[in-house]
Design a protein around this nucleic acid. Structure first.
Length: 123
DNA sequence: CATATGACGACAA
DNA sequence: ATTGTCGCCATAT
């Protein structure tokens, strides 16, 4: 494994760790955040290589359509669904509404940032 | 070096 | 909404 590859791996892990509880992201988006344009497949590969007991929240990463890419009848697929629901993520017909649950989307910004100034008299 | 593979993504029907 | 095709990119053979 090259040094560059290892650097990208760390960047991917770091980006995934930033996804808040109750939110999700996509392989492609995580790749961008990690500074790897068109690196969606690499993100999937890195997550697939995580040790089983890892504390990295890999379950918060879905494909661009908001669907769980892994087979839902597999152990990993069921675990992912279970963890997401535990965190309050709503899954309908096997997919998540990214407009509501995607981390760092425009709606997210509108709802959670920027913070309001409670001392501002003009409000 | 040529091919195949896959936890991907964009786009056309 | 679904499905098929093609492009992408690190790895494996």
């Amino acid at each position: 494994m090259s040094e560059q590859t290892e650097r990208r791996r760390r960047a991917i892990i770091a980006a995934v760790r930033r996804i808040p509880v109750g939110k999700v992201s996509s392989y492609g988006r995580i790749a961008e955040i990690a500074g790897i344009p068109r690196g969606a497949r690499e993100v999937g590969r890195v997550l697939g290589q995580l040790p089983s007991g890892s504390d990295v929240p890999w379950h918060r990463v879905l494909n661009a359509a908001g669907k769980i890419h892994r087979p839902t009848d597999s152990a990993g697929g069921r675990l992912q669904v279970h963890r997401l629901q535990e965190e309050g993520v709503v899954i309908i017909h096997g997919k998540v509404n990214m407009r509501s649950f995607a981390w760092q989307n425009s709606l997210d910004e509108a709802l959670w940032g920027p913070p309001v100034d409670l001392d501002d008299e003009s409000i």
